[in-house]
């Protein structure tokens, strides 16, 4: 079962998209922390939330779009 899913194109595309998304979130979070180190805690919280939302797409692709 798992081999068939991982061989599918849509999971690869979703993984590509969410990887780019998580990378952008991390990049901007690092930039923002560099610009305003005092807000590091709030930036970390928001970065984790949005990284999680971007990351969620690939799990939906794996488990729901068979």
């Amino acid at each position: 079962m798992f081999a068939v899913i991982t061989g599918s194109l849509h999971v690869g595309l979703a993984a590509l998209g969410s990887a780019v998304g998580v990378g952008l979130v991390g990049m901007k979070a690092a930039e923002a922390t560099g610009r305003n180190p005092g807000a590091a805690g709030e930036i970390r919280t928001q970065a984790i939330i949005f990284a999680a939302l971007a990351e969620g797409i690939v799990f939906i692709a794996i488990f729901l779009a068979k």
Partner: peptide, 14 residues
């Protein structure tokens, strides 16, 4: 409606 699904699969998948 997608929220519980995403929460479920995110934790399970990871």
């Amino acid at each position: 409606g997608v929220r519980p699904v995403a929460l479920t699969f995110r934790l399970y998948g990871n």
